[in-house]
Nucleic acid binder design. Structure first.
Length: 281
DNA sequence: GTGTCATGCGTAT
DNA sequence: TACGCCTGACACG
């Protein structure tokens, strides 16, 4: 079981939009599903709950939107929402010391999961899990049968800017501030266009683009929306860090397609970015 | 060292 | 609309 020192990679997962949680569920599930876990809370804020879970077998990990659920053999389910700051680390032996703010530490002999800074971390029963899931709109990474139509239907009733609607987790679960700007750029829609004034084809295109981009983000572990040809590259893997996005945080920089300067403005307290030429009002 | 900002969201006013 | 909550990176003096 001895591992070379440099293989103890601390896989930090950032950017807590939906793709991060689905990726976390997949990667963590491979390591922990079906195992009896040692569970503790070095920080102390989850101590009672950790005792309740300690020694139980984890049955499954699943995600919807930005929420992730760990169902144990007792049917107790740990529910985590990372918020802005929450971070996971997956460690291999020899395990590092947990940081003082480590809310939850889950271990087998082979793997350690370190969770710090979550917005929410609590144990739910089956009914409470259903309540959380029911609050969430269709998730493009799950993309279940009928979700596309459901999304179009929900959006079509909203007389609010589409830039606001996209952040409403009840309309579509998993999109955050980065994907909001990127998806609207990709389909050429200005963030202030009213959701209910977009035609069904455009809303369908928005759903399809969300499916494609969030699934790609889940696979790669980061948000990369730029088509390589728009920056003179051959494939996405050749893009540098600063080349990966079209609009997000690029105000004052030229659009990658038309060179118009990217603009930004506050929508409900969060910045949104767009190209005034590619996304006409 | 201090202040600010951030890829989120719930509650109070 | 404001605030509180969770934390870390960065700019600034």
């Amino acid at each position: 079981m001895l591992a070379p020192v440099d293989s103890n990679s601390q896989k930090k997962m950032r950017m807590p939009e939906g793709h991060v949680l689905h990726r976390a569920a997949r990667l963590q599930g491979k390591r922990f599903n079906g195992h009896a876990l040692s569970v503790s809370s070095p920080q102390g804020r989850f101590s009672d709950e950790a005792k309740q879970l300690d020694g139980q077998t984890l049955e499954t990990i699943f995600a919807k939107g930005k929420h992730i659920f760990y169902r144990f053999e007792s049917d107790d389910t740990m529910h985590v929402h990372l918020g802005l700051f929450g971070k996971y680390r997956l460690n291999k032996p020899p395990f590092p010391e947990p940081s003082p703010n480590c809310r939850v530490l889950m271990e087998t002999d082979e793997n350690q999961l370190h969770l710090a800074g979550p917005n929410q971390c609590r144990i739910l029963d089956a009914g409470e899990v259903d309540d959380v899931l029911a609050r969430l709109g269709p998730d493009p990474i799950i993309n279940a049968s009928g979700d596309r139509e459901e999304f179009i239907s929900r959006m079509h009733k909203k007389k609010v800017p589409v830039g606001r609607a996209l952040m409403d987790q009840n309309l579509m679960a998993g999109v955050g501030n980065v994907y909001r700007s990127e998806l609207l750029f990709q389909i050429g829609v200005h963030p202030w266009r009213k959701a209910n004034e977009l035609d069904p084809e455009t809303l369908g295109e928005l759903w399809d683009q969300s499916v494609a981009e969030l699934k790609a983000g889940e696979r790669v572990g980061k948000i990369v929306t730029v088509e390589p040809s728009d920056v003179g590259a051959q494939k996405r893997s050749e893009l540098t860090k600063t080349e990966s996005l079209y609009a997000y945080k690029r105000h004052g920089d030229p659009c990658r397609r038309c060179e118009t300067l990217i603009r930004h403005a506050d929508i409900d307290g969060r910045n949104a970015w767009w190209c005034p030429t590619c996304q006409p009002k």
